[in-house]
């Protein structure tokens, strides 16, 4: 079974889904992006993919989420043999240096603060796109 999904966005904020969706549409990659609400759903989604070649090329994790938050999800991903090599970018409203340091030490490849301007949003999505090129 072939799978077009290349980016998995895990965020409980529906509004952010819509904002990101806008950017992805403009870049015509909306079909390659999957949105889920929280860490539990993200892991479920990944477990259901049978072929390793169908795993996403990038996981974007929000930090503050119900059930399984961003850093907990990150830890579980990094402990799983199949998923540990998938790059993870944390994106969050929090500008806390502590939070950032913690996530990077857990194995995230980047920590991005959620955008407050159109340009910042664009730069962020451009960064995401580099992983599926």
């Amino acid at each position: 079974m072939s799978n077009d999904i290349r980016i998995l966005v895990v965020d409980d904020d529906k509004e952010d889904h819509l904002i990101l969706q806008e950017y992805f549409s403009e870049s015509r990659i909306e079909k390659n992006v999957k949105f889920v609400d929280n860490g539990v759903k993200a892991l479920e989604y990944l477990e259901n993919i049978t072929g390793d070649e169908d795993l996403p090329k990038l996981i974007v994790l929000d930090l503050n989420m119900p059930l399984l938050n961003g850093s907990q999800t990150l830890l579980q991903l990094k402990q799983n043999m199949r998923f540990k090599n998938i790059p993870v970018i944390i994106y969050s409203t929090s500008e806390s240096e502590n939070e950032k340091r913690k996530c990077l030490s857990f194995g995230a490849i980047d920590y991005m603060v959620k955008p407050v301007t159109m340009e910042e949003g664009q730069r962020m999505v451009d960064k995401f796109k580099t992983f599926i090129a």
């Binding site: 904020d13 409203t93 929090s94 500008e95 959620k114 955008p115 301007t117 159109m118």
Partner: peptide
């Protein structure tokens, strides 16, 4: 740090989108 800043960020973002788009 989070819950208050979250809606504020959206306010900034949408204002920016409104101004530009």
């Amino acid at each position: 740090s989070h819950d208050l800043q979250e809606p504020l960020r959206k306010l900034f973002f949408y204002t920016d989108v409104l101004k530009k788009k």
